[in-house]
Design a protein around this nucleic acid. Structure first.
Lengths: 193, 193
DNA sequence: GTAACATGCAAGTATACACTTACATAGTAA
DNA sequence: TTACTATGTAAGTGTATACTTGCATGTTAC
């Protein structure tokens, strides 16, 4: 059994507690306890509490991974691509779920976090619009406003993610796969010429 | 100029500060200052800080208003109804925006709030499913899974609301009306037989 | 073996916070 | 007037929090 290095354990614990309780309510004492280290160790590594948050933000900083992910495996078959995109998007967002939750809680007090998260939909919007443009050129897309179409698709997937992340499956027992299957089917039908 | 009664002013100030900073970071001192009252007055009215939150939750308690709103002005013309629904939903959510934000921040620490908010999609889902069922009977709906369809439509609208509430129009300059027009058009096209 | 380093432990400081108490004051109702 | 109610003011209490300091201990690198 390999133990994680101390700073990592601290960041993991902080991520969990801050995403659950918010920055102010997540005390350094509780973070230290959860990480299994002494409270002073936190200050030795990160200077002060804010330094811990800054380190968390740094680990989530925008990576080209997202853009890459979106461009991978394109088949130029509308429903296939939209479903694939939705699944990838959902997986990606779930992987940064705790960070998204922090950004919801601390957006006003820590604008740096907000910027980091607000970037995601912007990147996705650009990629989607490019994809839709090309599909239009190929005659595979009805004559709709491309930006609005992209925004609608983003809203749809974002909505699914937030519902699951916040409410779990209490609203609907259906699996994400089923839900995304249906939604992308409806959506692609709605924008097919 | 009529001044609001003291308890109301306190609740308004608390709603604003807690929705911005979260429960722990919104101090009673700051709430009192914003409300223009003395700090002790808060405790005289609400006992303790938690009492303030409880009072806020009470004012947002589920009213039959939402259900009523959803059943009003149904024309049994798919696109018209969906657009009307989306606009009403958006307006309603915006009116309780601060409360939704609090529920995002304090869900784990105050389950009562969570229940209150988690109710909204449940009610809407039920109403939407009933509407879709009837549309199916009238032969105006393609043969899709009704629950998944309702969930997709909810996710779509929820996504738009959260985007606006959190990110404003930084992601897209298009007006909500335009966005909802496009999205409902796509959606209704996608589920029309 | 020894020096450097990371961590634990114990104790402490200053501050901010929720909340209390006692008293003064102004407005309202009988 | 009198009595009551709502609020302000001033002063305080106990606690929790972020953060510091000094010293002990164990591990690693050479």
């Amino acid at each position: 059994m390999t133990t994680q290095p101390t700073p990592d354990r601290i960041l993991d614990a902080a991520l969990k507690l801050i995403s659950e309780k918010g920055y102010t309510a997540a005390t350094t004492k509780a973070i230290a306890e959860l990480a299994g280290v002494n409270e002073v160790t936190i200050f030795r590594h990160f200077g002060n509490k804010r330094g811990v948050l800054k380190a968390i933000v740094a680990t989530f900083s925008y990576s080209p991974l997202l853009k890459e992910m979106l461009q991978k495996d394109v088949t130029w078959e509308l429903e296939t691509d939209l479903f694939h995109f939705s699944m990838e998007y959902f997986r990606y967002m779930m992987s940064i779920k705790d960070f998204v939750m922090i950004s919801f809680k601390e957006a006003i007090q820590f604008p740096e976090i907000d910027e980091e998260i607000a970037n995601v939909p912007l990147i996705i919007k650009r990629e989607l619009m490019e994809y839709f443009s090309k599909m239009k050129d190929r005659g595979k897309l009805a004559d709709t406003n491309i930006e609005a179409t992209a925004m609608a698709f983003i809203a749809l997937n974002f909505g699914f993610f937030i519902s699951r992340a916040r409410l779990g499956s209490s609203v609907s027992q259906l699996s994400i796969e089923d839900l995304l299957q249906t939604s992308t089917s409806i959506f692609s039908r709605g924008i097919t010429p």
